[in-house]
Design a protein around this nucleic acid. Structure first.
Lengths: 340, 340
DNA sequence: CTGAAAGCGCTTACAG
DNA sequence: CTGAAAGCGCTTACAG
């Protein structure tokens, strides 16, 4: 911090008004849209604002407008896991992209999956933000449902509680997507297909399991080869080992995420099992994880960046107009690569 | 947004005072430390606060205290690249861990690597935050140097401009770390060692190149086998191909990041070149990327989580006391795995 | 130990 | 089209 700091003190509205020789009201008017200000006064004031590098004080403005111009990005998830998954990184990227063009600022609220910390609760309930985006919503806590009654909230992924009808979210049809992936495996002639799930407390994971089951049954195949995973690579590896133990003869694996698939493929590689020759693998997401390894992963694509963008757009819409669009289901598609 | 919203309107200090039958001053005092408040009044007011679920209005408090209680987390980097690298994810994790126990809130400022957007500039310079943490500092722009004159700033990684002496940062000794990695390769009997750099505009990358060069020269080895990378997996893969073209006989590669190493190993795998038998590989970071693939990557460890924590602690210190610790260099160590 | 009053920097009816 | 005034919800000297 340098010595000039004092002199750098941000100018106030008052000072701009004095410098321009007008009242505070007038300066305020030109800042807030220039409504009903004569052209020359407008020009004069604008110049003064630029010259003084004036920026309205956020707190003062918030106080009178009863708006914080801040949005909370709530991530009820272990940080490393969250950001370790490129799928979520893309979503955050999309969110920030559209917020960049708005006047809103994004507050990062990382909190434990189960119950949000007291600090986060107070913060969110204390009127510190105008709205919230909640990504990766686990079940277990009613907090976010309660939050939704307090301010506009958009969820990334359909929330767990089905009874909630007025909830806003952006998602894909996870069941249909999973079906797509499994069908691809079946169309390849695979019959002994294992499945590695996502976390049991996330709706997306549950829906994918439904899709897997439906696809298997439609083809009259055994749908019992299921092992729990958690969307992570290490979880995928562990599940793969269990699958191999149960069914050394399996010829394909469908994984609930690309990270899961990559972990599973590591195990396959270690055992000298060839992909896709011996075991074909399909993942879910089409995140960078799908192309990071030696073998490109065939996967069910979610438009993650666009989903993030849509979440932000939806919240902005709600902030502007309470009756904005309710929710949005985006399309999935199969992306073929080397693994299946 | 439900109908109860109106009734949910957050109570004000005034209302708490009325409910407790005391003045606003008194309520304010119990909130701000309970200084000089009689025991029974303190109890009464505290109960009222709890009952009404009162939380001080942030804007109002900011306005009078001339503090925002917000910290900017500035990431001048492509989001996907940034969060796609688990090393950075760990740093963010560490930062949020420490901030969780403070009264500060974290504002996410994702901005382009070269010149921060006008919005970000205005935001940071407009007195909207009390301090900033800048991670992944490229060269090219004087903005952050200027920012440092305005408020306390902590950099993740030693900034590019060496003339800046009063800068606060957390880093490792990148040159020494790189030397460690290369020496390991040499001790394994490798002689024809390639090197894949990081981005040329990041100080950490430059320092690692110095370390690599020093180690090679100390052993009188050819230090010309260098190809530029960018810390990403795909950049590592491309550089690996070039390296192989230039020197089909190389027996080791040192990569400036684990992600880079993983990309390089993918190419090696595709060509049927065995790791570590034919080519040994050492990475840098010890991020989850090092253990994600089929072959565990031997790497130079940076304590990323702890670095993030230290960055937050340092900024908190600066916010409390302007003469806090200047900078902190954390230790690196070699972590042996399968790749070398 | 407690309250009345001023003031933080804005916006917005209200007059003119 | 423009200015004076009130008020957003707090904190903090200042009296008592």
């Amino acid at each position: 911090m340098s010595v000039q700091e004092q002199s750098r003190r941000a100018p106030t509205l008052e000072e701009v008004a004095a410098a321009a020789g007008v009242s505070r009201s007038t300066v305020s008017r030109v800042i807030n849209g220039g409504a009903k200000v004569s052209p020359d006064v407008l020009r004069l004031v604008s110049e003064t604002i630029d010259r003084l590098e004036y920026t309205p004080n956020r707190a003062a403005r918030s106080l009178v407008k009863q708006q914080t111009m801040a949005i909370a990005l709530v991530i009820p998830e272990d940080t490393n896991r969250f950001f370790g998954d490129p799928f979520f990184a893309s979503i955050v990227s999309g969110i920030t992209q559209v917020l960049e063009d708005s006047d809103y600022v994004l507050n990062l609220q990382l909190t434990s999956p189960a119950t949000p910390s007291a600090k986060t609760r107070r913060y969110l309930l204390g009127g510190n933000v105008d709205g919230a985006i909640v990504v990766s919503h686990h079940s277990g806590d009613e907090f976010f449902t309660r939050l939704d009654a307090t301010m506009p909230v958009v969820f990334g992924g359909r929330p767990f509680h089905p009874e909630q009808h007025d909830i806003h979210f952006v998602d894909v049809d996870n069941a249909a997507g999973a079906e797509l992936g499994v069908q691809h495996l079946i169309s390849l002639g695979r019959r002994r297909i294992g499945y590695i799930t996502g976390p049991a407390d996330m709706q997306a994971a549950i829906d994918r399991t439904h899709g897997w089951r439906r696809a298997m049954r439609l083809s009259a195949l055994d749908d019992s080869l299921v092992e729990p995973g958690d969307f992570s690579a290490s979880g995928g590896a562990a599940a793969m080992r269990r699958l191999l133990e149960r069914a050394p003869d399996l010829d394909a694996v469908f994984a609930a995420s690309d990270l899961t698939a990559s972990g599973a493929m590591g195990v396959l590689h270690d055992r000298g099992i060839r992909v896709p020759d011996d075991v074909a693998v399909v993942g879910f997401d089409d995140s960078p994880a799908a192309v990071r390894g030696e073998i490109g992963i065939t996967t069910v694509r979610q438009p993650s960046l666009e989903m993030g963008r849509e979440m932000a757009r939806m919240l902005l819409g709600l902030l502007r107009d309470h009756d904005a669009q309710r929710s949005r289901i985006m399309p999935t598609e199969l992306v073929r690569r080397a693994s299946a």
